[in-house]
C-alpha cells in the first residue's frame, strides 16, 4: 500500500524532519528490543517489549499508516503483552533477577536469529529498494487505502491467514475438549462403587463433595465496594 513510488526524491544527504524522527525512533525501538532479549528480569523484558512494539507503532504513524499503527497498539500492546504478563504472573514473576531463566542456548539462538533477521532485512530491502513515500500528499496508509489494498490485491493471503487462524482456534478447542473428556473418564472410573475395597469409596467422597460445593453452585454476592464514598 505504500508502494506508490514518486519520482525525484530529495536524496539521502538532505533529510527532512520526519526522516530524522523516523531514524531516532528506530534506534530507540532497536535499543528496547535488545534490552528485551538481554535483561535478566522477566517482567522487565515484557515491559521493554511494550516499548519496542510501541516504537514500531510510532514508525507506522510516521509513515502515515495510521490504521496499521493503532491496530499494532491494540493487538500487540493491548492484548499480546497483557497475555504475556498474565502468563508470567501466573507461573513465576519474581522481582529482581532470575539467572536460572537463562537456558544456555545462547549461541544456538544467535545462530537461528541472525540468519532469520538477515533474511527478513534482505527481503524488505530488496522488495522496496529505492521506493520513496510521498508524506506530504494524501495519507497513503489511511484506513480506506489499507482496506482497498487488502481486499483488492491481497484477498487470497488474507483469507488463507484467516483459515489458518480458524484452524488454530479449532485446534485449541479440540485440545481443551479432549482434556475434559479425559477427566470425565477418570471420574467415571472413580465413581463406580468398588464393593470389594472400602477404601476406594472413601477416597471418592471428598472429590464429589468438592464438586458439589464448587464455585458454580453457590451464589454468594459480595458486599458493595465502599472505598471512596
Amino acid at each position: 500500500m505504500i508502494l506508490s513510488a514518486t519520482a525525484g526524491h530529495p536524496g539521502f544527504l538532505s533529510p527532512t524532519g520526519v526522516e530524522i524522527a523516523f531514524l531516532l525512533v528506530g534506534l530507540a525501538t532497536f535499543g528496547a528490543a535488545v534490552v528485551t532479549v538481554t535483561t535478566k528480569q522477566l517482567v522487565h523484558a515484557a515491559l521493554w517489549l511494550v516499548v519496542a512494539l510501541g516504537g514500531i507503532a510510532v514508525e507506522y504513524l510516521l509513515l502515515t499508516a495510521e490504521f496499521i499503527a493503532w491496530v499494532q497498539v491494540l493487538i500487540y500492546v493491548g492484548s499480546v503483552v497483557v497475555l504475556l504478563l498474565f502468563g508470567l504472573m501466573l507461573t513465576r514473576a519474581p522481582i529482581g533477577r532470575s539467572p536460572d531463566a537463562d537456558s544456555g542456548n545462547r549461541w544456538m539462538a544467535l545462530g537461528a536469529s541472525v540468519p532469520a533477521a538477515g533474511a527478513l532485512v534482505w527481503v524488505v530491502v530488496d522488495a522496496f529498494r529505492t521506493t520513496w513515500i510521498d508524506l506530504d500528499g494524501p495519507a497513503q496508509g489511511s484506513t480506506k487505502a489499507s482496506g482497498e489494498f487488502l481486499f483488492r490485491n491481497w484477498v487470497l493471503p488474507f483469507e488463507a491467514l484467516s483459515v489458518l487462524l480458524l484452524a488454530a482456534l479449532v485446534g485449541a478447542i479440540v485440545l481443551s475438549r479432549k482434556d475434559r473428556q479425559d477427566r470425565k473418564d477418570r471420574k467415571d472410573r472413580k465413581d463406580r462403587p468398588d464393593r470389594s475395597d472400602g477404601r476406594t469409596a472413601g477416597q471418592v467422597r471428598p472429590d464429589t463433595r468438592a464438586r458439589r460445593t464448587g464455585p458454580d453452585r453457590t451464589e454468594r454476592p459480595a458486599a458493595d465496594r465502599e472505598d471512596n464514598s
Binding site: V43, L47, V50, E66, F67, W70, V71, V73, L74, V77, G78, S79, V81, V82, L85, M89, A93, I95, A139, S142, T143
Partner: peptide, 26 residues
C-alpha cells in the same frame, strides 16, 4: 481528528490497563 478514531481510542484504552498490571506486579 484521527482517521482511525475507533481503533485509536480502543487501543489506547487497552494500554491503560497495563498500568494496573505493572502496579500489581511491582
Amino acid at each position: 481528528v484521527i482517521d482511525a478514531g475507533i481503533f485509536f481510542v480502543l487501543a489506547v484504552m487497552g494500554v491503560g490497563v497495563l498500568g494496573s498490571l505493572m502496579a500489581g506486579w511491582a
